[in-house]
């Protein structure tokens, strides 16, 4: 069991500024307040293009999924986007069952997600 670790990095792909958020470990009722604080701080700072890398995430609780839906709505409202990269099969299944994958785009890795965000910005 690995506790939550979050790192962020500013990326600029073809003039499209993206904040990459890499999550390791689990987001549950215990670690959620920290995840919420980190994500909302980024959004409130004006980061409207977010790439959430879940490659090393082991668990996401429903409250965190609700937060992602809320943030997705907010960044889309600001002409931005929230995309996800590198979900495990287990987490991807939860996204599919809840219908979240119909709204939030998911990519196999960061590179592909960044390419897509840059292409959307250019179009």
């Amino acid at each position: 069991m690995r506790e939550l670790s979050i790192t962020t990095e500013a990326c600029d792909t073809g003039g499209c500024p993206v904040r990459v958020v890499r999550v390791s470990g689990y987001i549950d009722a215990h670690s959620f307040p920290r995840f919420e604080r980190e994500i909302l701080t980024l959004v409130n700072q004006g980061n409207n293009r977010l790439l959430l890398d879940l490659r090393n995430a082991t668990y996401i609780c429903s409250t965190a999924l609700g937060l992602l839906m809320s943030v997705f709505r907010q960044v889309r409202h600001n002409a931005g986007d929230l995309v996800i990269a590198g979900m495990s099969e287990k987490i991807a299944n939860i996204f599919n069952l809840l219908g979240i994958s119909k709204l939030i785009q998911a990519f196999p890795d960061e590179e592909e997600a960044l390419r897509c965000l840059a292409a959307a910005e250019a179009s």
């Binding site: 609780c61 429903s62 409250t63 999924l65 609700g66 937060l67 839906m69 809320s70 997705f72 709505r73 069952l97 809840l98 219908g99 979240i100 119909k102 709204l103």
Partner: peptide
């Protein structure tokens, strides 16, 4: 659970009860 409606509502809570019932 209508996830599009949930997202549009701006709510953050309420997914858990559906998960317990349906998973």
């Amino acid at each position: 659970l209508d996830i599009a409606e949930f997202a549009a509502s701006g709510r953050r809570r309420g997914i858990g009860s559906y998960i317990i019932r349906s998973f």
